[in-house]
Design a binder for these strands. Structure first.
Lengths: 201, 201
DNA sequence: TAGTACATTAACTAAATGGTTAAACTCAAT
DNA sequence: ATTGAGTTTAACCATTTAGTTAATGTACTA
C-alpha cells in the first residue's frame, strides 16, 4: 500500500541517502528500510540484493554527474566563456550535491570494475569535444599551447577537491560551515581567474 | 615468539595496509591477522579493539602527511621557490603513497570527530606560516593581492585530486597505469606554472 | 629445574547482518 | 462475495564478525 510515492521510489530515495552518506560497506539494509519506513524484506522483494540495489543507485548518481559537463562544450560561445560557464555551473552542482564526488571516488576505489559496466563510452565523446576546442584555440593563437589533459585535471581538481576535502580544510582555515561555503562559492571566480591567467597568451 | 620484527610492529604494518586499502568499514580483523600471519586474538591482546587499532593507524598516517609541508615555508629561499619546492615534494610524496589522501578523506568523512582528538593545533602554525609569507609578498609588491586560503586550496587541489580521482580520470584519458603516472609526474611543472601565472604581477 | 610472567593459539560467544519464507493484507476484476 | 495477483510483514536462517577465554607455549630467572 502506497502513501503518495510508490514503494520502489521510496526505496531508491532512502538507499541513495544512506549509500551516499555511508558507502557500500558502511550501509546496513535495515537502515535503508528504516529510512524508507518499511520492512527490510521489501528491499529484497524489489531489488533482490544489496549489491543490485547499490548498483542501481551508483548508476543513477554517476549518470547524473558526468554528462552535465558535456553539453557546455558544444555551445557556440567563446572558449573562455565555455570554461567560465563550466566552472560556475559545476560548482553550483557540487554545492547542491556536496557528498556525491566522495561517494563516486570511494566506491570506484573499492571496486574499479563498476565503471566498466557503466557508460564510459560517453567519456570519449566528452573528452574529444573538449580536446577539439582546445586544439582549435591553440591553432588560432588565442590560447597558449597547453595539454587538454592538464586543463581538465586543473579545472576539475580545483572545483571538486575543496568539497571532498572539506572535513580537513574546514579545520585548517578555522571556519564554520557557513564561512566555508562562502569560500566555495567565491571559487567560481577564483578558479576561472586561475585557469584564464594560465592559458592566456 | 618473534621472527625478526616484533609482533606489535607486524600488526601495525598489516593493519595499515588493510585499513588504507579498504577503510574502517571494509576491513575485517581476520584479514589483518592473516596479513600479519598470526592469530586474530593477538590483535585484541595488543590493541583491545578494532576502533583502537584503527585510531593508532589513522594517527600515524595523518601525522606522516600533514607536517611534511610545514617545514618548507620557514626556509629562507624566495617565495616562488618555496611554492615550487612544496608542489614538487608533495607530488613526490603522493607518488609514493597514492592511497593515503583518499584514506584520510574517507575516514574523516565517516567520523569527523577523529580530527578533534588529533593534532590540529599544528594546523594553526602551518596556516599562519603560509599566511605570513603571502602577506609579506603582497606588501612588497612581489605578487598580486590573493587570498591565502585560495592559494592553498588551488595548490593542494591540483596536487592531490589527480591521485584521488585516478580510477575515474584514468578512464577519461584512456590511459593505462604507466601513462597516467607519467601525467602525474608532469604535474610537478604544470601545477607550479599555473600557480605562478596566477599570482605573478 | 621449578617457577613465573608474558605471548600465542584454538575454540568459543554474542550480536549483527544479508537474505528467505510463509502467512497476511490490499485491491481490482469477475 | 470470491478469486487471484501483487504487496507487505513478522519471524526465521545461515553466516559473518568483533571480541573473549582458557589452555598451551616460550623464555627468562632464581
Amino acid at each position: 500500500m502506497n502513501d503518495d510515492k510508490n514503494t520502489e521510489e521510496k526505496i531508491l530515495n532512502a538507499a541513495r541517502q544512506v549509500f551516499i552518506e555511508k558507502g557500500f560497506d558502511g550501509t546496513r539494509m535495515q537502515e535503508i528500510a528504516d529510512t524508507a519506513g518499511m520492512n527490510k524484506a521489501l528491499l529484497h522483494y524489489y531489488f533482490r540484493s544489496k549489491e543490485k540495489l547499490f548498483m542501481k543507485i551508483f548508476e543513477i548518481t554517476f549518470k547524473q554527474f558526468v554528462p552535465k559537463m558535456s553539453g557546455i562544450f558544444s555551445s557556440d560561445t567563446s572558449f573562455m566563456d565555455k570554461i567560465q560557464l563550466f566552472i560556475s555551473s559545476y560548482i553550483d552542482l557540487l554545492d547542491k550535491n556536496p557528498y556525491i564526488p566522495l561517494f563516486i571516488i570511494r566506491e570506484l576505489s573499492r571496486n574499479p570494475n563498476v565503471i566498466k559496466e557503466l557508460i564510459f563510452d560517453k567519456f570519449e565523446i566528452i573528452y574529444n569535444a573538449i580536446d577539439l576546442n582546445v586544439k582549435a584555440e591553440i591553432q588560432a593563437g588565442r590560447i597558449r599551447d597547453i595539454d587538454t589533459k592538464h586543463l581538465i585535471l586543473n579545472t576539475v581538481s580545483m572545483c571538486i577537491f575543496p568539497f571532498v576535502g572539506k572535513p580537513l580544510l574546514k579545520h585548517l582555515f578555522k571556519t564554520n560551515d557557513d564561512e566555508y561555503r562562502t569560500i566555495l562559492i567565491e571559487r567560481k571566480n577564483v578558479v576561472f581567474e586561475v585557469i584564464k591567467k594560465w592559458i592566456s597568451i
